[in-house]
Amino acid sequence: MSAGEFREVDHDLLADYVGGALDDTGEAAVVARLIVADPAWAAAHMALTEATRAVGSDLADWGATPEPMPSEVADRLARALVDANLRDAPSAAATPPKVGLAVVPPAPGRDGDDNVVRPRRGWPRWAAPIAAAAGMAAFAGFGLTQLTGGDRPARDNSTAARDTVGPRDAQEDAPAVTSARSGSPQFARRPARVVSSGTDYGPGTLKGLPDDTGRPRYASPLTATDAAQGSFPAVPRALRPLADDAALAACLDAVTTAHGRGPIVVDVVDFASFQRAPAVVVAFTDGTAERWVWVAGPRCGHPGAGSDTRHHARVG
């Protein structure tokens, strides 16, 4: 296309030009030349520029007027969401309350099944400390064993696994974020330490992760209090979603898959950073008794993201 081809103003093209839709295209230069060379284009350009500026001003003025949701609409939608919670109860019922969120009190109409928390009608008004403790345990499973006994890592992954990862229901009826996982987690569930050391690792410092005695090297394991209160001051914000037990399990599964040597035994999970970027640093032993450190990014375990690997190295 050349400037000479135009005799009549192409108003769509001119509108695109004025609106910036032709920026960085060859057409922008052509239109610019037409505006300079052709009085009709020049006049149209001037008029359109002025007019669209006025239109933009009108629209912005309208947009500057607050448009808060009317209370009756808010009430209606809130009720609809409560109803939806009741309809979609199965996933909620099988999952313990999550860290940092209000805990569901026993519903008046519960049927006596102490292991099932029913969604209730209406809005929550209070939180139940007893239920909070139960909810906390689900999260803190990885870290709590360290706090409550510091037991040496066991190769047996049966009983310890169930005890440390949380209620069995929570594992088997994994919430949606982990539903994409296929089958059971591949990493061997056992008492692993979950810490937030604040360390900024690099390729040369990964061997600073725990030795094979399993003794903690870090002074700031995630505590039960942290978990119960939902406060993880040392955990980089980008990694906080992974401080959820199911999300962490998905991440460790992804690491296992990425490692590709069968089940692994996780020694330590450190919510830290690697080369100044937030990273989950996982130390584990694989089926060949080799010790590895895997550095995963914040998207570790997300469907499609795999382990979000940033680095990995054999350390023993």
Binding site: N85, S91, A92, A93, K98, G100, V104, P175, V177, D244
Partner: peptide, 9 residues
């Protein structure tokens, strides 16, 4: 995520 995991609020 909390919602997906069953938190009703």
């Amino acid at each position: 995520r909390a919602h997906a995991q069953g938190d009703p609020d």
